[in-house]
Amino acid sequence: MEVRTIKVFTTVDNINLHTQVVDMSMTYGQQFGPTYLDGADVTKIKPHNSHEGKTFYVLPNDDTLRVEAFEYYHTTDPSFLGRYMSALNHTKKWKYPQVNGLTSIKWADNNCYLATALLTLQQIELKFNPPALQDAYYRARAGEAANFCALILAYCNKTVGELGDVRETMSYLFQHANLDSCKRVLNVVCKTCGQQQTTLKGVEAVMYMGTLSYEQFKKGVQIPCTCGKQATKYLVQQESPFVMMSAPPAQYELKHGTFTCASEYTGNYQCGHYKHITSKETLYCIDGALLTKSSEYKGPITDVFYKENSYTTTIK
């Protein structure tokens, strides 16, 4: 009895394709271990004539594949690729409408935090270190965002349907971005203890939790000093293409032309909904596939993004 075979390709990165001759009487799992086709788990399936010449994702289970996976995804987590594939199996079914010149995501599976993050990423200057993220990001900007969303979920250790947080998501993504040249110098002034300067680099240099107003941050924000008295913390120097200011959701007025974009969060910790506000020729609110415009805006804002380049204080 002759062994019926077909020729397929296996890959971990969709760049390096490895030619395989597979036995049609055995499952993919018996031949390769966990195997995925377009995100779908085909591990328990036997090869079919229609699979001839198709590319299958496999887990990096030998040295060659491990090197290829690390170079593309910059992670050695053995569960990463499987999590990416199972997320992709959902995100490829989502709709990605162009809204006001940006790629958004039609609401499904509690994905409003991903839509808000995706919209924000198209408006701030950011370059990702893992080629996987950078490639998928370019495709997302062009309207094909399924891979990018699935990668975000995998890097953030999230599953489809789980509630997510924009600030946490951005923080994970910033860790995989090139923020080497970003720098922030802060000064804390206390009447009792004097003053202390701190220099922050990388992710810490672009994120701040405690106030939404970048102007206020430049002037000074009140913080408790270690001595128990009130101290003032203010920005001395900022070198970065953008800054992200966050605070627990509270009524906040966004003035046209003073910011790049913002995240609105309605609801409580267990259950809520994100919308995205962007400042173009007027203010726009993007909620999944829905767009509304207004000249002014007041609502429960939790993150505001500002364009920056270089700032030095005039406070002496």
Rank of each mutant, 00 (worst) to 15 (best):
residue 4 R to C: 14
residue 6 I to D: 05
residue 6 I to Q: 11
residue 7 K to P: 11
residue 10 T to G: 06
residue 13 D to K: 05
residue 13 D to I: 06
residue 13 D to H: 03
residue 13 D to N: 14
residue 14 N to C: 10
residue 16 N to H: 12
residue 16 N to D: 06
residue 20 Q to E: 10
residue 21 V to Q: 12
residue 24 M to I: 13
residue 25 S to D: 14
residue 25 S to F: 14
residue 27 T to V: 14
residue 32 F to T: 12
residue 34 P to W: 08
residue 34 P to I: 08
residue 38 D to G: 09
residue 38 D to T: 09
residue 39 G to F: 10
residue 40 A to N: 15
residue 43 T to C: 12
residue 44 K to S: 12
residue 45 I to M: 13
residue 47 P to A: 11
residue 47 P to H: 01
residue 48 H to W: 15
residue 49 N to Y: 13
residue 49 N to P: 14
residue 51 H to T: 04
residue 51 H to A: 07
residue 52 E to S: 13
residue 56 F to N: 03
residue 59 L to A: 11
residue 61 N to E: 13
residue 61 N to G: 14
residue 63 D to Y: 08
residue 65 L to R: 09
residue 65 L to D: 07
residue 66 R to W: 09
residue 66 R to C: 13
residue 66 R to F: 13
residue 67 V to K: 10
residue 68 E to W: 09
residue 68 E to Y: 05
residue 69 A to I: 10
residue 69 A to M: 15
residue 70 F to K: 09
residue 75 T to H: 07
residue 75 T to R: 08
residue 78 P to G: 09
residue 79 S to A: 14
residue 79 S to P: 10
residue 80 F to A: 03
residue 80 F to D: 03
residue 81 L to Y: 08
residue 81 L to T: 08
residue 82 G to A: 12
residue 82 G to D: 15
residue 82 G to K: 13
residue 86 S to V: 12
residue 86 S to G: 11
residue 90 H to M: 12
residue 90 H to S: 12
residue 91 T to Q: 04
residue 91 T to L: 05
residue 93 K to T: 13
residue 93 K to L: 10
residue 94 W to K: 04
residue 94 W to F: 02
residue 94 W to D: 06
residue 95 K to Q: 15
residue 97 P to W: 08
residue 97 P to H: 12
residue 97 P to V: 14
residue 98 Q to I: 12
residue 98 Q to N: 11
residue 100 N to C: 13
residue 100 N to P: 04
residue 101 G to E: 05
residue 101 G to N: 09
residue 101 G to I: 03
residue 105 I to G: 05
residue 106 K to L: 11
residue 107 W to Y: 05
residue 109 D to P: 02
residue 109 D to C: 05
residue 110 N to R: 05
residue 110 N to W: 03
residue 110 N to H: 04
residue 111 N to S: 03
residue 111 N to C: 00
residue 112 C to F: 01
residue 116 T to W: 03
residue 117 A to H: 02
residue 118 L to E: 04
residue 122 Q to L: 04
residue 122 Q to R: 03
residue 122 Q to M: 05
residue 123 Q to Y: 05
residue 124 I to L: 15
residue 124 I to G: 04
residue 129 N to D: 08
residue 131 P to A: 05
residue 131 P to M: 04
residue 132 A to E: 01
residue 136 A to T: 08
residue 136 A to D: 04
residue 137 Y to C: 07
residue 138 Y to W: 14
residue 138 Y to G: 14
residue 139 R to Y: 09
residue 139 R to I: 08
residue 140 A to I: 12
residue 140 A to E: 05
residue 141 R to C: 13
residue 142 A to V: 13
residue 146 A to G: 07
residue 146 A to Q: 09
residue 146 A to F: 05
residue 146 A to N: 02
residue 146 A to H: 07
residue 147 N to I: 09
residue 148 F to T: 05
residue 149 C to Y: 05
residue 149 C to T: 10
residue 149 C to N: 01
residue 150 A to Y: 00
residue 151 L to K: 04
residue 151 L to C: 02
residue 152 I to S: 02
residue 155 Y to N: 01
residue 155 Y to I: 04
residue 155 Y to M: 01
residue 155 Y to T: 00
residue 157 N to G: 11
residue 157 N to I: 03
residue 158 K to H: 03
residue 158 K to R: 07
residue 161 G to I: 02
residue 161 G to M: 05
residue 161 G to Q: 05
residue 161 G to V: 04
residue 162 E to D: 13
residue 163 L to C: 15
residue 164 G to C: 04
residue 164 G to P: 00
residue 164 G to R: 05
residue 165 D to W: 01
residue 165 D to I: 01
residue 168 E to F: 05
residue 168 E to I: 06
residue 169 T to Q: 05
residue 169 T to A: 06
residue 171 S to V: 13
residue 172 Y to R: 12
residue 172 Y to S: 13
residue 173 L to Q: 02
residue 175 Q to T: 08
residue 175 Q to V: 05
residue 181 S to W: 10
residue 181 S to T: 12
residue 182 C to R: 04
residue 183 K to D: 03
residue 185 V to Q: 05
residue 188 V to T: 15
residue 189 V to A: 11
residue 189 V to L: 09
residue 191 K to N: 13
residue 197 Q to E: 12
residue 197 Q to T: 15
residue 198 T to E: 13
residue 199 T to L: 07
residue 199 T to N: 07
residue 200 L to T: 11
residue 201 K to M: 10
residue 202 G to N: 05
residue 203 V to W: 14
residue 204 E to M: 08
residue 204 E to H: 12
residue 205 A to S: 08
residue 206 V to S: 02
residue 207 M to I: 08
residue 207 M to P: 04
residue 207 M to Q: 08
residue 207 M to C: 08
residue 210 G to M: 00
residue 210 G to E: 01
residue 210 G to V: 00
residue 211 T to E: 12
residue 212 L to R: 05
residue 212 L to F: 02
residue 213 S to V: 05
residue 214 Y to G: 01
residue 215 E to S: 08
residue 217 F to V: 13
residue 218 K to C: 07
residue 218 K to T: 06
residue 218 K to W: 06
residue 218 K to D: 01
residue 218 K to N: 01
residue 219 K to V: 10
residue 219 K to L: 11
residue 220 G to S: 05
residue 223 I to C: 15
residue 223 I to A: 13
residue 224 P to Q: 13
residue 225 C to E: 04
residue 227 C to D: 01
residue 227 C to N: 01
residue 227 C to G: 00
residue 227 C to V: 00
residue 229 K to N: 15
residue 230 Q to F: 15
residue 231 A to T: 02
residue 234 Y to C: 06
residue 234 Y to D: 02
residue 238 Q to E: 00
residue 238 Q to F: 01
residue 238 Q to N: 02
residue 239 E to P: 01
residue 239 E to M: 10
residue 239 E to A: 08
residue 239 E to V: 13
residue 239 E to D: 11
residue 241 P to M: 03
residue 244 M to L: 05
residue 244 M to T: 00
residue 245 M to P: 00
residue 247 A to M: 07
residue 248 P to F: 15
residue 248 P to Y: 14
residue 250 A to F: 07
residue 252 Y to H: 12
residue 253 E to C: 07
residue 255 K to M: 11
residue 256 H to I: 15
residue 259 F to A: 00
residue 261 C to S: 02
residue 261 C to Q: 01
residue 263 S to H: 15
residue 264 E to F: 01
residue 266 T to W: 06
residue 268 N to K: 09
residue 271 C to V: 08
residue 271 C to M: 14
residue 271 C to W: 13
residue 275 K to H: 00
residue 275 K to Q: 07
residue 276 H to I: 05
residue 277 I to K: 01
residue 277 I to Q: 06
residue 277 I to W: 13
residue 277 I to A: 00
residue 278 T to K: 00
residue 279 S to W: 04
residue 281 E to T: 06
residue 282 T to W: 08
residue 282 T to F: 09
residue 283 L to S: 00
residue 284 Y to N: 08
residue 284 Y to K: 01
residue 285 C to M: 15
residue 285 C to N: 08
residue 287 D to H: 00
residue 289 A to P: 08
residue 290 L to V: 15
residue 293 K to I: 09
residue 294 S to E: 10
residue 297 Y to P: 00
residue 298 K to H: 13
residue 300 P to D: 11
residue 300 P to W: 12
residue 301 I to W: 00
residue 301 I to G: 00
residue 302 T to M: 00
residue 302 T to K: 01
residue 303 D to T: 03
residue 303 D to Y: 04
residue 304 V to R: 01
residue 305 F to A: 00
residue 306 Y to A: 00
residue 307 K to D: 09
residue 308 E to R: 06
residue 308 E to N: 11
residue 309 N to L: 09
residue 309 N to M: 09
residue 310 S to A: 12
residue 310 S to Y: 14
residue 310 S to L: 15
residue 312 T to K: 08
residue 313 T to G: 11
residue 315 I to G: 12
